[in-house]
Amino acid sequence: MSDKKHIVVIGGGPAGCVAAERLSRLGFRVSIVEKECELGGNLNNWDRLFPDGKRASEMVTKLVNDVKMADVAVWTDVEPIEAKRVENGFTILLSDKSLLFADAVMLTTGFAPFNAIRKEEYGYGIYRNVTTSVELENMIQAHIVPDTVSRVGMVHCVGSRDEKCGNMYCSKVCCITAVKQAIELKQMLPNAEIFCFYMDMRMFGPGYEELYREAQERYGIKFVRGRVSEASEDSEGRVAIKVEDTLVGRPMRMKLDRLVLMVGMEPSAGTRSVAELLGVKTKVNGFIQGGDPHIAANQTNVPGVFVAGTATAPMNSTDTLNDACAAAFQVANYLNG
Protein backbone atom coordinates (compact mmCIF):
# COMPACT_ATOMS: atom_id res chain seq x y z
CA MET A 1 0.00 0.00 0.00
CA SER A 2 1.51 3.26 -1.08
CA ASP A 3 1.28 6.42 0.99
CA LYS A 4 -0.13 8.30 -1.97
CA LYS A 5 -3.42 10.03 -1.25
CA HIS A 6 -6.44 8.27 -2.69
CA ILE A 7 -9.24 9.88 -4.69
CA VAL A 8 -12.44 8.08 -5.51
CA VAL A 9 -14.12 9.31 -8.70
CA ILE A 10 -17.79 8.38 -8.73
CA GLY A 11 -19.05 8.08 -12.30
CA GLY A 12 -17.00 6.92 -15.27
CA GLY A 13 -18.33 9.16 -18.02
CA PRO A 14 -16.19 11.67 -19.89
CA ALA A 15 -15.79 13.92 -16.84
CA GLY A 16 -14.86 11.01 -14.58
CA CYS A 17 -12.33 9.59 -17.03
CA VAL A 18 -10.56 12.90 -17.60
CA ALA A 19 -10.54 13.87 -13.94
CA ALA A 20 -9.18 10.44 -12.96
CA GLU A 21 -6.48 10.50 -15.59
CA ARG A 22 -5.36 14.03 -14.66
CA LEU A 23 -5.28 13.30 -10.94
CA SER A 24 -3.31 10.13 -11.49
CA ARG A 25 -0.78 12.06 -13.56
CA LEU A 26 -0.57 14.63 -10.77
CA GLY A 27 0.67 11.85 -8.53
CA PHE A 28 -2.42 10.59 -6.72
CA ARG A 29 -3.86 7.11 -6.42
CA VAL A 30 -7.23 7.16 -8.20
CA SER A 31 -10.18 4.79 -8.43
CA ILE A 32 -13.21 5.18 -10.71
CA VAL A 33 -16.50 3.72 -9.54
CA GLU A 34 -18.89 3.11 -12.44
CA LYS A 35 -22.34 1.53 -12.16
CA GLU A 36 -22.41 0.35 -15.78
CA CYS A 37 -20.17 -2.42 -17.13
CA GLU A 38 -17.99 -0.03 -19.12
CA LEU A 39 -16.66 3.51 -18.99
CA GLY A 40 -17.94 6.29 -21.25
CA GLY A 41 -21.31 7.21 -19.73
CA ASN A 42 -23.83 8.88 -22.01
CA LEU A 43 -21.23 9.00 -24.79
CA ASN A 44 -21.79 5.27 -25.32
CA ASN A 45 -25.31 6.08 -26.40
CA TRP A 46 -24.31 8.69 -28.95
CA ASP A 47 -23.15 8.60 -32.57
CA ARG A 48 -21.35 11.78 -33.50
CA LEU A 49 -20.43 14.92 -31.62
CA PHE A 50 -21.00 18.50 -32.65
CA PRO A 51 -19.64 20.71 -34.04
CA ASP A 52 -17.04 18.66 -35.90
CA GLY A 53 -18.85 15.35 -36.29
CA LYS A 54 -16.29 13.35 -34.32
CA ARG A 55 -17.45 9.79 -33.57
CA ALA A 56 -18.47 9.44 -29.94
CA SER A 57 -16.97 5.94 -29.96
CA GLU A 58 -13.64 7.41 -30.97
CA MET A 59 -13.84 9.78 -28.04
CA VAL A 60 -14.69 6.97 -25.65
CA THR A 61 -11.79 4.88 -26.88
CA LYS A 62 -9.43 7.76 -26.27
CA LEU A 63 -10.79 8.39 -22.78
CA VAL A 64 -10.60 4.73 -21.79
CA ASN A 65 -7.06 4.40 -23.12
CA ASP A 66 -5.95 7.48 -21.23
CA VAL A 67 -7.41 6.05 -18.06
CA LYS A 68 -5.64 2.74 -18.61
CA MET A 69 -2.31 4.40 -19.36
CA ALA A 70 -2.62 6.52 -16.26
CA ASP A 71 -2.89 3.48 -14.00
CA VAL A 72 -6.30 4.25 -12.58
CA ALA A 73 -8.16 1.49 -10.72
CA VAL A 74 -11.54 0.99 -12.42
CA TRP A 75 -14.47 -0.55 -10.57
CA THR A 76 -17.35 -1.29 -12.91
CA ASP A 77 -20.84 -2.66 -12.20
CA VAL A 78 -20.79 -1.15 -8.74
CA GLU A 79 -22.21 1.89 -7.10
CA PRO A 80 -21.73 3.45 -3.70
CA ILE A 81 -24.39 2.42 -1.22
CA GLU A 82 -23.01 4.05 1.88
CA ALA A 83 -20.61 6.88 2.52
CA LYS A 84 -19.24 8.07 5.82
CA ARG A 85 -17.11 11.00 6.73
CA VAL A 86 -14.15 9.88 8.82
CA GLU A 87 -11.10 11.71 10.01
CA ASN A 88 -9.30 13.22 7.02
CA GLY A 89 -11.46 11.50 4.47
CA PHE A 90 -14.37 9.26 3.62
CA THR A 91 -15.16 5.57 3.66
CA ILE A 92 -17.31 4.45 0.79
CA LEU A 93 -19.11 1.13 0.81
CA LEU A 94 -19.80 -0.23 -2.67
CA SER A 95 -22.65 -2.45 -3.74
CA ASP A 96 -20.25 -5.42 -4.04
CA LYS A 97 -19.41 -4.91 -0.33
CA SER A 98 -15.91 -3.59 -0.94
CA LEU A 99 -14.95 -0.68 1.25
CA LEU A 100 -12.89 2.18 -0.14
CA PHE A 101 -11.14 4.87 1.83
CA ALA A 102 -10.89 8.19 0.04
CA ASP A 103 -8.92 11.29 0.97
CA ALA A 104 -11.14 13.15 -1.50
CA VAL A 105 -14.18 12.32 -3.58
CA MET A 106 -14.95 13.54 -7.07
CA LEU A 107 -18.57 13.39 -8.21
CA THR A 108 -18.93 12.96 -11.95
CA THR A 109 -22.29 11.27 -11.91
CA GLY A 110 -23.60 13.14 -14.94
CA PHE A 111 -27.07 13.63 -16.35
CA ALA A 112 -29.98 11.58 -17.60
CA PRO A 113 -31.97 12.55 -20.67
CA PHE A 114 -35.38 14.03 -19.82
CA ASN A 115 -38.12 11.41 -19.83
CA ALA A 116 -40.31 12.59 -22.71
CA ILE A 117 -43.33 10.68 -21.39
CA ARG A 118 -43.71 13.55 -18.93
CA LYS A 119 -44.49 15.93 -21.81
CA GLU A 120 -47.67 14.07 -22.59
CA GLU A 121 -49.02 16.60 -25.11
CA TYR A 122 -46.28 15.60 -27.56
CA GLY A 123 -47.52 12.03 -27.61
CA TYR A 124 -44.25 10.25 -26.90
CA GLY A 125 -44.96 6.61 -26.17
CA ILE A 126 -48.46 7.03 -27.60
CA TYR A 127 -47.94 7.86 -31.26
CA ARG A 128 -45.74 5.57 -33.37
CA ASN A 129 -43.81 8.35 -35.03
CA VAL A 130 -42.76 10.43 -32.09
CA THR A 131 -39.17 9.78 -30.99
CA THR A 132 -36.60 11.46 -28.80
CA SER A 133 -33.32 12.91 -29.98
CA VAL A 134 -31.52 10.06 -28.20
CA GLU A 135 -33.48 7.49 -30.17
CA LEU A 136 -32.88 9.41 -33.38
CA GLU A 137 -29.15 9.42 -32.66
CA ASN A 138 -29.27 5.63 -32.29
CA MET A 139 -31.26 5.33 -35.51
CA ILE A 140 -28.77 7.47 -37.36
CA GLN A 141 -25.92 5.38 -35.98
CA ALA A 142 -27.61 2.16 -37.04
CA HIS A 143 -28.66 3.63 -40.40
CA ILE A 144 -32.28 2.67 -39.83
CA VAL A 145 -34.03 5.92 -40.72
CA PRO A 146 -36.74 4.81 -43.15
CA ASP A 147 -36.43 6.51 -46.53
CA THR A 148 -40.20 6.93 -46.70
CA VAL A 149 -39.84 9.79 -44.28
CA SER A 150 -40.40 12.97 -46.18
CA ARG A 151 -41.04 15.48 -43.44
CA VAL A 152 -39.52 15.68 -40.00
CA GLY A 153 -40.15 18.18 -37.22
CA MET A 154 -37.73 18.71 -34.37
CA VAL A 155 -39.07 20.26 -31.20
CA HIS A 156 -36.52 22.17 -29.16
CA CYS A 157 -36.62 22.60 -25.39
CA VAL A 158 -38.44 19.39 -24.44
CA GLY A 159 -37.99 19.19 -20.72
CA SER A 160 -35.87 22.34 -20.60
CA ARG A 161 -36.86 25.95 -20.02
CA ASP A 162 -40.27 24.64 -19.07
CA GLU A 163 -42.09 25.54 -15.91
CA LYS A 164 -44.64 22.86 -16.75
CA CYS A 165 -42.23 20.06 -15.98
CA GLY A 166 -40.36 21.90 -13.27
CA ASN A 167 -37.17 22.43 -15.30
CA MET A 168 -36.55 26.14 -15.62
CA TYR A 169 -32.99 25.86 -16.90
CA CYS A 170 -31.61 25.64 -20.45
CA SER A 171 -29.98 22.31 -21.27
CA LYS A 172 -27.61 24.11 -23.63
CA VAL A 173 -26.91 21.21 -26.00
CA CYS A 174 -30.34 20.61 -27.56
CA CYS A 175 -30.28 23.52 -30.05
CA ILE A 176 -26.95 22.51 -31.53
CA THR A 177 -27.91 18.82 -31.38
CA ALA A 178 -31.05 19.61 -33.38
CA VAL A 179 -28.95 21.43 -35.97
CA LYS A 180 -26.49 18.55 -36.12
CA GLN A 181 -29.16 15.86 -36.37
CA ALA A 182 -31.13 17.85 -38.91
CA ILE A 183 -28.05 17.99 -41.13
CA GLU A 184 -27.40 14.27 -40.65
CA LEU A 185 -31.02 13.47 -41.53
CA LYS A 186 -30.82 15.64 -44.59
CA GLN A 187 -27.65 13.85 -45.62
CA MET A 188 -29.47 10.53 -45.37
CA LEU A 189 -32.75 11.76 -46.83
CA PRO A 190 -31.90 14.45 -49.36
CA ASN A 191 -35.53 14.93 -50.38
CA ALA A 192 -36.96 15.28 -46.90
CA GLU A 193 -38.19 18.55 -45.51
CA ILE A 194 -36.86 19.22 -42.05
CA PHE A 195 -38.24 21.77 -39.62
CA CYS A 196 -36.81 22.93 -36.33
CA PHE A 197 -39.32 24.50 -33.94
CA TYR A 198 -37.43 26.69 -31.52
CA MET A 199 -38.05 29.35 -28.86
CA ASP A 200 -34.53 30.81 -29.09
CA MET A 201 -31.56 29.46 -31.04
CA ARG A 202 -28.76 29.32 -28.51
CA MET A 203 -25.61 28.90 -30.60
CA PHE A 204 -23.09 29.70 -27.89
CA GLY A 205 -20.14 27.43 -28.69
CA PRO A 206 -17.34 27.89 -31.17
CA GLY A 207 -18.47 26.79 -34.61
CA TYR A 208 -22.12 26.51 -33.59
CA GLU A 209 -23.40 29.61 -35.35
CA GLU A 210 -21.51 28.51 -38.45
CA LEU A 211 -23.17 25.12 -38.31
CA TYR A 212 -26.57 26.82 -37.97
CA ARG A 213 -25.89 28.84 -41.12
CA GLU A 214 -24.71 25.76 -42.91
CA ALA A 215 -27.91 23.97 -41.95
CA GLN A 216 -29.92 26.76 -43.53
CA GLU A 217 -27.78 27.52 -46.58
CA ARG A 218 -26.41 24.16 -47.55
CA TYR A 219 -29.08 21.79 -46.26
CA GLY A 220 -32.21 23.89 -46.47
CA ILE A 221 -33.31 23.10 -42.92
CA LYS A 222 -36.27 25.31 -42.04
CA PHE A 223 -36.37 27.04 -38.73
CA VAL A 224 -39.75 28.04 -37.34
CA ARG A 225 -39.87 30.28 -34.31
CA GLY A 226 -42.63 28.85 -32.21
CA ARG A 227 -43.21 26.36 -29.47
CA VAL A 228 -45.20 23.27 -30.43
CA SER A 229 -48.12 23.10 -28.06
CA GLU A 230 -49.45 19.64 -28.80
CA ALA A 231 -49.48 16.80 -31.27
CA SER A 232 -52.08 14.32 -32.45
CA GLU A 233 -52.02 11.32 -34.74
CA ASP A 234 -54.03 10.80 -37.91
CA SER A 235 -55.31 7.48 -39.17
CA GLU A 236 -52.18 6.89 -41.27
CA GLY A 237 -49.95 7.44 -38.29
CA ARG A 238 -48.72 10.86 -39.30
CA VAL A 239 -48.23 13.36 -36.54
CA ALA A 240 -50.23 16.56 -36.68
CA ILE A 241 -48.75 19.37 -34.68
CA LYS A 242 -50.07 22.67 -33.45
CA VAL A 243 -47.63 25.52 -33.32
CA GLU A 244 -47.71 29.24 -33.83
CA ASP A 245 -45.37 30.57 -36.45
CA THR A 246 -44.72 33.58 -34.28
CA LEU A 247 -42.82 35.44 -36.97
CA VAL A 248 -45.81 35.19 -39.28
CA GLY A 249 -48.10 35.79 -36.34
CA ARG A 250 -50.55 33.00 -37.05
CA PRO A 251 -51.11 29.49 -35.76
CA MET A 252 -49.75 26.83 -38.06
CA ARG A 253 -50.85 23.27 -38.45
CA MET A 254 -48.64 20.74 -40.10
CA LYS A 255 -48.45 16.99 -40.61
CA LEU A 256 -45.15 15.24 -40.13
CA ASP A 257 -43.84 11.76 -40.79
CA ARG A 258 -41.77 11.99 -37.68
CA LEU A 259 -41.63 14.24 -34.68
CA VAL A 260 -38.31 14.36 -32.84
CA LEU A 261 -38.27 15.65 -29.28
CA MET A 262 -34.99 17.32 -28.35
CA VAL A 263 -34.88 16.10 -24.78
CA GLY A 264 -32.95 18.12 -22.24
CA MET A 265 -30.74 17.09 -19.36
CA GLU A 266 -31.83 16.21 -15.86
CA PRO A 267 -29.61 15.21 -12.95
CA SER A 268 -29.06 11.45 -13.17
CA ALA A 269 -30.40 9.09 -10.52
CA GLY A 270 -26.77 8.57 -9.48
CA THR A 271 -26.28 12.30 -9.04
CA ARG A 272 -29.29 12.50 -6.75
CA SER A 273 -28.45 9.45 -4.68
CA VAL A 274 -24.75 10.22 -4.25
CA ALA A 275 -25.53 13.79 -3.27
CA GLU A 276 -27.78 12.41 -0.56
CA LEU A 277 -25.20 9.83 0.60
CA LEU A 278 -22.52 12.44 1.04
CA GLY A 279 -24.73 15.25 2.24
CA VAL A 280 -23.88 17.37 -0.77
CA LYS A 281 -26.20 20.29 -1.42
CA THR A 282 -28.14 20.39 -4.64
CA LYS A 283 -29.69 23.33 -6.45
CA VAL A 284 -33.44 23.78 -6.79
CA ASN A 285 -33.18 22.11 -10.18
CA GLY A 286 -31.58 19.01 -8.64
CA PHE A 287 -28.05 19.45 -9.99
CA ILE A 288 -25.22 19.60 -7.48
CA GLN A 289 -24.48 23.02 -6.05
CA GLY A 290 -20.92 24.04 -6.80
CA GLY A 291 -18.97 26.70 -4.92
CA ASP A 292 -18.20 30.22 -6.12
CA PRO A 293 -19.07 30.10 -9.83
CA HIS A 294 -15.92 31.99 -10.82
CA ILE A 295 -13.20 30.50 -8.72
CA ALA A 296 -14.49 27.41 -6.95
CA ALA A 297 -17.14 25.97 -9.24
CA ASN A 298 -15.96 22.41 -8.58
CA GLN A 299 -16.16 22.58 -4.81
CA THR A 300 -19.22 21.47 -2.88
CA ASN A 301 -20.50 22.31 0.57
CA VAL A 302 -18.68 19.20 1.91
CA PRO A 303 -14.91 19.77 2.20
CA GLY A 304 -13.12 17.05 0.27
CA VAL A 305 -16.03 16.39 -2.08
CA PHE A 306 -15.71 17.89 -5.56
CA VAL A 307 -17.94 17.86 -8.57
CA ALA A 308 -17.39 18.11 -12.31
CA GLY A 309 -19.31 17.89 -15.56
CA THR A 310 -23.05 17.54 -15.99
CA ALA A 311 -23.59 16.52 -12.39
CA THR A 312 -23.45 20.21 -11.62
CA ALA A 313 -25.22 21.75 -14.63
CA PRO A 314 -26.04 20.92 -18.23
CA MET A 315 -22.99 21.34 -20.45
CA ASN A 316 -21.64 20.04 -23.73
CA SER A 317 -18.83 17.48 -23.94
CA THR A 318 -16.16 20.11 -24.63
CA ASP A 319 -17.02 22.04 -21.48
CA THR A 320 -17.39 18.82 -19.53
CA LEU A 321 -13.84 17.76 -20.33
CA ASN A 322 -12.45 21.19 -19.45
CA ASP A 323 -14.48 21.27 -16.25
CA ALA A 324 -13.03 17.90 -15.26
CA CYS A 325 -9.46 19.17 -15.78
CA ALA A 326 -10.21 22.22 -13.67
CA ALA A 327 -11.74 20.03 -10.98
CA ALA A 328 -8.64 17.81 -10.91
CA PHE A 329 -6.53 20.86 -10.08
CA GLN A 330 -8.90 21.91 -7.33
CA VAL A 331 -8.66 18.45 -5.77
CA ALA A 332 -4.87 18.52 -6.02
CA ASN A 333 -4.77 21.92 -4.32
CA TYR A 334 -6.99 20.63 -1.56
CA LEU A 335 -4.95 17.49 -0.92
CA ASN A 336 -1.57 19.19 -1.20
CA GLY A 337 -2.89 22.21 0.72
Partner: peptide
Protein backbone atom coordinates in the same frame (compact mmCIF):
# COMPACT_ATOMS: atom_id res chain seq x y z
CA UNK B 1 -43.29 35.99 -21.49
CA UNK B 2 -40.77 35.27 -24.24
CA UNK B 3 -43.36 35.16 -26.99
CA UNK B 4 -42.85 31.49 -27.86
CA UNK B 5 -46.40 31.18 -29.12
CA UNK B 6 -47.28 28.05 -27.17
CA UNK B 7 -50.42 29.77 -25.90
CA UNK B 8 -51.59 30.92 -29.31
CA UNK B 9 -50.80 27.51 -30.82
CA UNK B 10 -53.02 25.66 -28.39
CA UNK B 11 -55.74 28.31 -28.19
CA UNK B 12 -59.11 27.01 -29.32
CA UNK B 13 -60.31 30.46 -30.31
CA UNK B 14 -57.00 31.35 -31.93
CA UNK B 15 -57.24 28.43 -34.31
CA UNK B 16 -60.62 29.61 -35.54
CA UNK B 17 -60.37 33.38 -35.55
CA UNK B 18 -57.81 36.14 -35.50
CA UNK B 19 -57.76 36.18 -31.71
CA UNK B 20 -54.08 35.74 -30.88
CA UNK B 21 -53.30 35.83 -27.21
CA UNK B 22 -49.52 36.12 -27.65
CA UNK B 23 -49.92 39.10 -29.95
Amino acid sequence: CIGCGGCSATCTAGNLTEFNIRK
